[in-house]
Design a protein around this nucleic acid. Structure first.
Lengths: 111, 111
DNA sequence: TTTATTCATCGTAATATTGCAATATATTAT
DNA sequence: ATAATATATTGCAATATTACGATGAATAAA
């Protein structure tokens, strides 16, 4: 085997896991934080900033783009990337939904 | 190659990515949600609930335990698992810190 | 038209993850 | 002591991820 059995889980569980997977690499966290700071940037900026190869950055950008966390607009030979605010908010809600299921005010219930 | 270049990133970025990685599988999301609902359970409960093999559940539990999201206390032949409230809150803060870096009230700044 | 710039994609190697059967370990019950 | 129960660990196969050089495609500048 070696393939995730997605059929065993709910759509919500698979979706949350997929978003978490997109955030599960420090380079992608760094890209997101850089985009938050600078508002927009190009692939080349990130190569400079992070010190990974151009192809590697491009690959990470594609993963973030695939689940719609970021979007890219072509401008000449460059591609301007930025965070998708709607998706960002929906992801935030997704995680808050998970976090708030747990009543942290009642720690005595732990085993 | 094929190994994450953690030295290129900050401790905070690596930590956030590691936590996200622990959440990046629907089985582990399901385990956490089941624990939130039932407060405590054993490996066998999760085998019944999720339909994965015992060895597979045990492996997922170990991953969650390794980053301290859950803890297990031995009781006879069984092990009672539960969520670690302190760690849960610190993880929640970690994600909120990321989400709140982005000013979602200003969507016009997107590319 | 040629050259430079920027980015995506392909191919490949190294490593990590997922899943499970088989086995080991540890405790409880008979 | 033996059997039953519950979980962890080992070993292995299938698949996925990470990283990067090389190449391709597309636009801009000379």
């Amino acid at each position: 085997m070696g393939i995730t059995q997605t059929h065993l889980f709910t759509d919500a569980q698979n979706e949350l896991a997929n978003v978490a997977k997109a955030l599960a690499h420090p380079a992608r966290i760094a890209i997101i934080q850089y985009l938050i700071k600078t508002n927009t940037c190009i692939n080349g900026d990130l190569v400079q900033e992070l010190g990974l190869a151009q192809a590697t950055i491009s690959q990470h950008l594609r993963e973030l783009k695939e689940i719609d966390i970021i979007q890219g607009t072509i401008e000449g030979t460059k591609v301007n990337y930025c965070i998708n605010p709607e998706k960002w908010n929906s992801i935030k809600s997704l995680f808050l939904g998970l976090f708030d299921q747990f009543n942290s005010n009642n720690p005595s219930t732990c085993c």
